[in-house]
């Protein structure tokens, strides 16, 4: 965990209700799949948001407006300085991916997979990505993944773009060595039941602190109770209990 003050350099919608916010400042050493916890004026608890991308002094998040806190965040202007806790959560482990990892994201579960894809491609992997959305107007980041060199499939529930249906309708029968996924829990469970390899699953839970102190977000695993914020949010397939 690192406490930092980061300045907003960009905060704009990329699709309806979904914002991209870039922050400038020393943000610590981040791994794909980790999150930051942002203090928002007028709210007691911080808001945990997964990290999309970063370089030495910039960090970018993509978040959806789902309540009053994220609504307030979306109205913040360039130049505003934020009190942020960084380097939170365990993040994805890339060394176990094999040569042909499959990345599966749903909705706002897609952004943390971007930095992961970047890291895996840098490691020489042949990365395939399945991105699931409700409808065409909600699609984010498909072009960004393509620009990295990943092979991208898009699914939409209403069939307005790509494969009609859920991400599981686009999972191939074979040909991948490992799975990384992030999205709503019903999607994670469907992916868990469909894939033929091991994988890592990133979970969401209502958090108090975000750094392991309050145990508000504990879940049961095959290896005992774990905190989603500190021991997760990424859990390996073999430890998950549904």
């Amino acid at each position: 965990m690192k406490a930092c003050t980061l300045e907003i350099t960009e905060n704009k919608p990329i699709v309806p209700l979904c914002f991209k916010m870039s922050l400038r400042g020393a943000h610590g050493e981040i791994k794909a799949g980790q999150f930051i916890n942002i203090m928002i004026d007028g709210f007691y608890l911080r808001r945990p948001i997964s990290v999309y991308d970063w370089d030495d002094d910039t960090l970018t998040v993509i978040y959806k407006v789902v309540g009053q806190g994220t609504d307030a965040l979306s109205k913040m202007d360039k130049g505003k300085k934020l009190d942020v806790l960084s380097e939170l959560g365990n993040g994805y482990k890339t060394s176990v991916s094999g040569m042909r990892p499959l990345l599966i994201g749903g909705g706002v579960g897609v952004p943390p997979l971007y930095a992961l894809a970047k890291a895996l491609i840098k490691d020489g992997c042949n990365v395939s990505v399945i991105l699931g959305f409700n409808t065409k107007s909600e699609i984010i980041l498909a072009d960004e993944f393509r620009a990295l060199g990943a092979s991208v499939s898009v699914t939409t529930v209403d069939g307005s773009e790509g494969v009609r249906g859920f991400v599981t309708d686009a999972i191939p029968y074979a040909g991948y060595t490992y799975v990384y996924t992030c999205g709503p829990e019903p999607m994670l469970k469907s992916v868990y039941n469909k894939i033929i390899t091991s994988g890592q699953f990133s979970f969401e839970e209502r958090m108090g602190c975000g750094f392991g102190a309050c145990v508000g977000c504990t879940c049961r695993t095959k290896y005992g109770n774990k905190r989603v914020c500190k021991d997760g949010p990424v859990f390996v397939k073999e430890e998950i209990i549904w």
Binding site: F43, Y44, L45, G69, E205, R206, M207, G208, C214, G216, C217, T218, C219
Partner: peptide, 13 residues
């Protein structure tokens, strides 16, 4: 869970 909720100037657990 969920076992955390926010409140004005506080939280419920």
């Amino acid at each position: 869970t969920p076992r955390i909720a926010e409140a004005p100037s506080g939280l419920l657990n």
